[in-house]
Write a protein that binds this DNA or RNA. Structure first.
Lengths: 139, 139
DNA sequence: AGTACAATAATACAATGATACAATTATGAA
DNA sequence: TTCATAATTGTATCATTGTATTATTGTACT
C-alpha cells in the first residue's frame, strides 16, 4: 500500500530548520533506508511543491543540492531520478548522516518545547526500551 | 468594511512604553477579542513599519517576541501568521505527549535505518552535547 | 560631563516567492 | 516518417520577507 510520496514527507513551517533542508534530510533518509531505490523517479518540482503547499523553487533548491551531493540526478525537461550507482561508500555515509539529522531534529524540537537535557535523554531511554521489547519478539 | 490593520493600531511615540511593547500589547488584545483569528496573516514587517512610520526592525522585534510567546508564527521568506492553535500556555500534558511523539519517531526512524540501541542512544548524547553548548542550557 | 543601558535605526544576509526562460518530450498534421 | 508546435520539466534571475549584527540615539544615573 504505497502512499503518495508527498505524504511520506513532513514539512514543519514553524521549524527553525528551512523547508529546503527538511526536504533534503528526509529524501536522503528514504534513500538510506531503501524506501527510495536507484532509478526511482521523484515527483516534478511543481507537483511536489503543490502537494506540500510550498513554492516550487524551494523544491528545486532541494533537488539541486541533492544533485550536487550526487544522490539524485536532475535533468532539465526530463525529471529527477535517484542516482543509479551511488558511490560504494555513499550509502553508509548517508545512513550516518541521516542518523545525525534525526538526532539533531529530535533535540532541536524537544528544546523548542522547553525540555531540559535530562528530560530529553530520559524520554529517549524510555522509548528505546519500549520499542526494543516489541522488536525482539518479532525478529 | 475592514480598516487597514495598521489603522487599528495606535502608536504613541511620546509614551514611556516602548513602541515594540505597544505593538505587542495591541496585537495580543486583538487576538484575545477575536479581531485577529488563527491563520490570519499579519502585514510584513516592512509594510506595517512604513504605515506606522517606525523602523521595520521595531516591528520585527515585536513579531519575534510574539513568536517566542507562541502567539504568532514568523516564517522567513513567507510572512507571519496567527498561530493555529494558540494554547496560552501549552499544557504540561500536551508538552509531554509531544516529547513522547518526538522520541518515538526518532527511535523508529533510526531503527528503520538499521542502527542498534547503543548507536541510537550514543548519537543522541552527542547531539545533546553539541546543541547544549550552543544554547548555554544553565540559564 | 561621563557611563551604562535600552530602544531604535542601518545594513547585510538567508529563505521563500514570482516570473521568464531553456531543454526535453508528447502530439498531431503533412 | 518528419517536422512543427504545444506541453512539461528543470533553471536562472530578481523581488519579497524575516533574521542577524552592528551602529546610533536617547535616557537615567553618578
Amino acid at each position: 500500500m504505497n502512499k503518495r510520496f508527498s505524504e511520506t514527507l513532513q514539512i514543519d513551517l514553524r521549524s527553525d530548520l528551512p523547508i529546503y533542508l527538511q526536504l533534503i534530510e528526509q529524501i536522503k533518509r528514504q534513500i538510506a533506508d531503501g524506501t527510495l531505490k536507484p532509478g526511482d523517479q521523484l515527483p516534478t518540482v511543481r507537483s511536489l511543491a503543490e502537494e506540500l503547499r510550498v513554492n516550487f523553487n524551494t523544491v528545486a533548491r532541494s533537488y539541486r543540492m541533492l544533485d550536487e551531493a550526487g544522490v539524485i540526478s536532475t535533468q532539465q525537461g526530463r525529471g529527477t531520478y535517484i542516482t543509479e550507482k551511488p558511490p560504494p561508500e555513499l550509502s553508509d555515509r548517508l545512513r550516518r548522516e541521516s542518523l545525525m539529522a534525526l538526532a539533531s531534529r529530535y533535540v532541536r524540537e524537544a528544546r523548542r518545547l522547553g525540555f531540559s537535557s535530562d528530560e530529553i535523554r530520559q524520554k529517549l531511554l524510555d522509548q528505546l526500551e519500549v520499542q526494543t521489547e516489541l522488536n525482539n519478539e518479532g525478529e
